[in-house]
Design a protein around this nucleic acid. Structure first.
Lengths: 293, 293
DNA sequence: GGTGCCATGATTCATATGTATCACATGCCG
DNA sequence: CGGCATGTGATACATATGAATCATGGCACC
């Protein structure tokens, strides 16, 4: 009578097919897992503004004998692992852990965590200063690095809407390279083997005497050559066939945050304006009831 | 009647002066904090081999009104801090606080590394199986999550060129939602506040009986509701103004690698073909064997 | 326009739960 | 030795709790 799957998974999967009241209470449950494991059914019902009996019915709808069964499952699912009571395990241990877990996913995730340790925060800070003082900022990245470029472009635009552009935004052939001017900053991301477009972008940036910020896997990368700022990330980390971009993503996020901090009150104001505009256009839906997360 | 100090500290300090039975039960309590917060007093007494009344007496000896008071304190002390959403963070952290934090880049990078530890490799593996066995795969992500979606889309296309598509590839209004069919898999990434498009995509996927794989910051996220697979990442990690996507990036990379591993020889062959095609078009300028940049 | 079905709220009830109370034991000081 | 205080186990009880049951209302399907 008690399913063995994780109760929250079970609940999440069943949620759409549940009648309105059960659905409502189910949503509350997913968002208040901890209270469900600790408080009483009636207490929960009061907090959720629902009828106590609904919780019993929800538990039974999920295949449990009753609310007590569901709660026991929630408790056991959340019980802390006695072997590793503290979360700050040394990341160096991960390599050993990986050997026990045959999955490639586990190995990649572990390698990513290691790769983030090697990033240079100081270099990010100084690059952020250059980015901040540039008249316009161009963001370039191609093939898999396009995701990195898009993220940086997106975050910068939140508080610098008019002076940031994505290189090649209209397609791979439209490279904007002729528009580079002295005083602009150009951010190029890439790793071996280097795409032709990224190298051309870096060359054009240098030719136009822009401030060139290069994110790459090695200082010997073509786009790093002659770059004013070089931020290194480890793309080859991990056992997967595909290189890892977590390092690059972490770099551009740190870069954007540092640039924002330099932007001061003006940046904050623009960010608020952007947020307000998005909210006005109903781009966002409200999160789960209550907690907002 | 209820002390405000952490209950476990209180208990530990009072422990030596307690009479034998209380001392015994008190020791049990510090070693079974979790059970104390979840199970009933009588249940605890049975587990500890003690008299139920002893727990009431212990609570009162510590200055609490009764066992319920002590347990409530234990519960609150152990309650996980709720993830602070993006906009709240902006509102809370005033400009003057964050303005001139010289180490914001370093702090973000450190937080990212910690966030990667929490990812669930097993869930990624099972999601990869679902993705692998799907006829077609749709990848969705909007606003800042578009970068995540694009990366997954890119990597999957390397070895699955004809059966992967990016939702809304032609613009925000072109959502492809009507094209979902049973047997397809839909991957949606999002975090609070959730973009309308992402929620609509998830709903359409469920309506079409697709396999829904949701990547989000909490199981209570709208797109996680009814999802067949849920992969959690921590978007609020770090001190930055912007949420972090490193966790999501790490997840999709692991997902792509795991799906590739499942694809076996056929996937490998297709990947080689794609590489050869790119090389033939001179997309790359140099570099060792690898995939792309 | 019935008619059955399901969702939902309200009521009721057996049981579990926390605690006050009593009873007994033990040790201490006179 | 006797009173007394304190620690401990057992019992009783008022209350809280979870769930079965009944009653109502809406909705789809003949």
């Amino acid at each position: 009578m008690a399913p063995d799957a994780p109760p929250l998974d079970l609940l999440r999967r069943a949620l759409p097919d549940l009648p309105p009241r059960l659905h409502e209470v189910g949503q509350f449950l997913v968002g208040h897992e901890f209270d469900a494991a600790t408080r009483s059914m009636r207490g929960l019902a009061a907090a959720a503004g629902a009828n106590p009996a609904t919780f019993t019915r929800l538990a039974q709808a999920l295949g449990y004998a009753g609310w007590d069964d569901l709660r026991d499952a929630l408790i056991e699912a959340r019980r802390p692992d006695p072997a590793t009571p503290f979360s700050d395990r040394v990341r160096r241990d991960r390599a050993d852990v990986v050997q026990d877990q045959p999955g490639i996913a586990a190995a990649m995730l572990a390698a990513d965590a290691v790769g983030l340790d090697r990033l240079d925060a100081t270099a990010v800070e100084t690059a952020a200063v250059a980015l901040h003082s540039a008249e316009r900022a161009w963001i370039a990245g191609f093939r898999s690095c396009r995701s990195v470029a898009e993220l940086l472009h997106y975050q910068l635009r939140l508080f610098r809407p008019d002076t940031v552009r994505l290189v090649g935004g209209s397609g791979p052939e439209d490279l904007d390279l002729g528009a580079f001017r002295q005083g602009d900053a150009v951010v190029v991301t890439g790793f071996a083997p280097y795409s032709r477009a990224s190298v051309m972008t870096a060359q054009a940036a240098r030719a136009a005497r822009c401030t060139l910020i290069a994110l790459a896997d090695t200082p010997a990368a073509p786009m790093a050559e002659g770059a004013d700022h070089f931020l290194r990330f480890d793309a080859a980390a991990g056992p997967g066939f595909f290189p890892s971009l977590t390092g690059a993503i972490a770099l551009v996020q740190a870069l954007a945050s540092a640039a924002f901090a330099l932007g001061g009150q003006q940046a904050l104001t623009r960010l608020r304006e952007t947020e307000a505009r998005l909210a006005a256009h109903s781009q966002y839906v409200s999160g789960p009831k209550g907690i907002q997360s």
